[in-house]
Design a protein around this nucleic acid. Structure first.
Lengths: 307, 307
DNA sequence: GAAACAATTCAGTATCGCTACATTGAGTTG
DNA sequence: CAACTCAATGTAGCGATACTGAATTGTTTC
């Protein structure tokens, strides 16, 4: 039972297949099998079981994976102590962000934690389907992720820090008849041509909810993940779209109207593995992200009042 | 930085020499040197330094050793989880005890945790000099240890559970003139021939304190570690001795008189490495030791009242 | 200054974890 | 239902690594 074997166990829990574990740890599947067997030989209890053609954890395996978290946390803290970085944060922190948030937060972040600073960020844009965000936490120290209100919460394998709880508004051309209303009901918009996102990405679920509320499917004419592109299409009169209120720069020639009766908000959260929070540098970046997100919301609310 | 290297670091802190670490871990000194070098290569900071001809930890080394405790605690807990022994204590627990306490507690302990029970104790008698008790915690899960009131506290490498705070009384033959007094002052006993213990063992320090209070050295005629043997010598009229009030079976033909003005008590404690406390079996034995010790004191106080 | 002891260095050896390739087994597709 | 695909497991061989044992350096003691 060593650090590596316990890491394999945790990855298997997070990723759900031996092959994925092997890729995440940059080894062959054969090596993973052998290490898992060695671990099970050591404890005498079966920790894994075949589930169809993939591999899952038994109850004992899950219990051990949970206990393994503390081992990795303790080891991370020991490394932090050894580097003498407990008091004064130092080192590199990798951060991944989805499109819209990267656009707004990354520049401010790199300004504060640029190259040469004691704490330096390495930035990556990663826009993936909602259920894929937790897996990114194995590759990056901090993961900026978003999910819609009524979707399942993030899994227990990651620690969650909430940044924003951001309303999604309906974007319309100013000359659109619906633009005259202050709030739009699901039935108002259900008959409009829609610009949604790719399957599995946020917003899709809310468009589905609108269809459910109206009692009939909606007409989705385009699927565009990039909100600023979607806004341009709205301006071009292709249809209506849902766009986040704060993180997307207000596009010219488009008006936003809140949606009534349907919970149209997304959570913008930072996901990370528990052991990352032991690093002072990671905590510093996380704190700054919260500051930036708060700024963003406040600045936007003020702008709202001006409009 | 793996479990073994961190263990070496902790042992070096506890034992104070590379050779002792090697013996404790059953490897050659050469292996220890190499592992320490590998560890230092990994962290980039010197963790050890020569102190005369032995090896000590630097400040960074001590810090890392402290952090290593959490790693070993987490690993011990993981092993406990893997064995499925978190709820129902199972397994063997090794216990070492010094002479007088072994005599009184071991039989009751083995009755509760005998062979075949889910929790079984392995008992060892180890009567060592006071400063050697903490080192025993590396060899045994639980160590019954004693120290006099005014001696330095146990080092931070061990967790301490107090069992008794036991008075030391002066043992006299009944016909001795001093036996008429209810309490004895240092000057009363300073001129008596003394039966003390070997150098470094408890009681010696208290006898020294008596000499200091009287202003002149006392006459130590015998040095006997075993209290029941010392009591026999007292009965034979060889001199007076200090004996613990509760843990030593009251010897026939000897009376005990409390000592005034000098703090003549010993702590009877259980020492263990922090990671041992994660094991439910160890905690069960420890709890039983506390029960037995409380019984012992109460039973003895009652007997006191009878006499 | 010699002897005793602690730590280190430097071979040589055994063990262990990895890759590469072959095989088994489960799900999918024509 | 055969053919295919993909996940996981077994096996042989290679390279890294942790150990032992002997020789060496440095420190304390008599």
């Amino acid at each position: 039972m060593d650090e590596r074997q316990l890491r394999i166990l945790r990855e298997l829990e997070a990723l759900g297949s031996l092959r994925a574990v092997a890729e995440a740890l940059h080894v062959t599947p054969s090596a993973v099998t052998q290490q898992l067997q060695a671990l099970q030989r050591g404890v005498g209890v079966p920790l894994t079981e075949r589930r169809g053609r993939t591999l899952g954890l038994t109850e004992a395996g899950s219990a051990l994976a949970a206990a393994a978290v503390d081992v990795h946390v303790a080891l991370a803290r020991a490394r932090e102590v050894a580097r003498g970085a407990t008091d004064r944060p130092r080192g590199e922190v990798s951060v991944s962000g989805f499109n819209s948030i990267a656009l707004t937060l990354f520049p401010a972040l790199v300004q504060r934690f640029g190259r040469g600073e004691p704490v330096a960020v390495r930035l990556f844009d990663e826009d993936v389907a909602q259920e894929a965000f937790p897996r990114l936490a194995g590759r990056y120290d901090l993961v900026l992720a978003h999910r819609l209100d009524h979707t399942p919460a993030w899994p227990g394998t990651v620690r969650v820090t909430a940044l924003l709880h951001e309303p999604l508004d309906v974007a319309l051309p100013p000359e659109h008849p619906l633009a005259a209303k202050r709030r739009l009901s699901p039935s108002d918009v259900a008959d409009q041509p829609w610009i949604s996102t790719h399957e599995g990405f946020p917003v899709v679920a809310t468009v589905d909810a609108i269809a459910a509320a109206a009692g009939h499917p909606v007409d989705i004419v385009h699927r565009v993940n990039e909100f600023s592109v979607a806004a341009e299409l709205v301006r071009a009169g292709c249809g209506v779209a849902l766009v986040p209120r704060w993180t997307v720069p207000r596009p010219r020639g488009v008006v936003l109207r809140p949606l009534a009766r349907i919970p149209a908000r997304r959570h913008v959260d930072v996901l990370c593995r528990p052991e990352q929070l032991t690093r002072a540098a990671v905590r510093a970046v996380l704190a700054q992200l919260r500051v930036l997100a708060d700024d963003l919301r406040e600045r936007s609310e003020v702008g709202e009042a001006d409009a």
